[in-house]
Design a protein around this nucleic acid. Structure first.
Lengths: 132, 132
DNA sequence: TTTCCTGCAAACCCTTTGCACATGG
DNA sequence: CCATGTGCAAAGGGTTTGCAGGAAA
């Protein structure tokens, strides 16, 4: 848990669900999973908790093709990107050997401070491609 | 214009706006730009036209961080990225020597087809930094 | 006890859809 | 003509917020 937050039944439940999988899940999916396992947590709280976790850097966020926010536990502290299938949403985590350093260099060259970047890679995975 | 579509004042207006810039714009921004230049086009029509253009492969689509769809004219020009100042919005165009090739390689390694990517670099430019 | 958290309901906001009218071909 | 496009208004759907009650510290 991030500092400055209280330990509540609801947050522990969300933590547990996020901890047990590496898949991206929307807030609604997390909420449904919680219901399924008997943890009663309000949808609002799920939204707020996931946002807090994202702010704290505990989970990654991305937007699905139809505009939903999807969250997934960070599996590596190291800077990385995601290769996302636009067909099924399957995601592969990609280590980033060079891009980060390159963007820092570019930013510095142009006198920019506090440089960061967003990189998402999209494609159609083998299965979805075969399926048509 | 894509085949099988009628040429209307509204579509020509949207085409014109999209043609004159390489920036990503949301439907609402396009609508506002049209109003500003005196082209009266309904927001609904802007949405429908941009979707049609996306289906026809005339524009690229991506989702912004807060879930809006953003559209940009497909450019056959060289692939490049933008270094954007989060203070004043100033943008520097950056040539991309390696990132594109790298993402293609990564996608292929994981069996992905039709691989593309979005990369935006953010920072605070010298002036904004000095200004505090 | 004080401060933060929760959850319901309602508000929000972008986007899509139903429908009657307008218009390109 | 008539198939397609347009625009208003209303519905959709995910997400956020106001607020009163509840729980952690």
């Amino acid at each position: 848990m991030a500092v400055g937050q209280r330990t509540t039944r609801q947050r522990e439940a969300v933590d547990r669900v996020m901890a047990q999988s590496e898949e991206f899940r929307t807030a609604q999916q997390v909420h449904e999973l919680l219901r399924a396992r008997g943890d009663q947590v309000g949808l609002t709280t799920v939204y707020r908790t996931l946002q807090a976790m994202a702010d704290a850097g505990e989970v990654d966020v991305l937007r699905t093709g139809d505009g939903e926010a999807a969250y997934r536990r960070c599996t590596s502290e190291q800077h990385h990107h995601h290769l996302v299938c636009t067909g099924c949403g399957r995601t592969v985590e990609i280590e980033d050997p060079d891009v980060h350093a390159w963007t820092q260099r570019i930013g510095a060259q142009h006198g920019f401070h506090d440089v960061r970047h967003d990189l998402e890679i999209y494609g159609v995975c083998e299965e979805c491609w075969a399926r048509g």
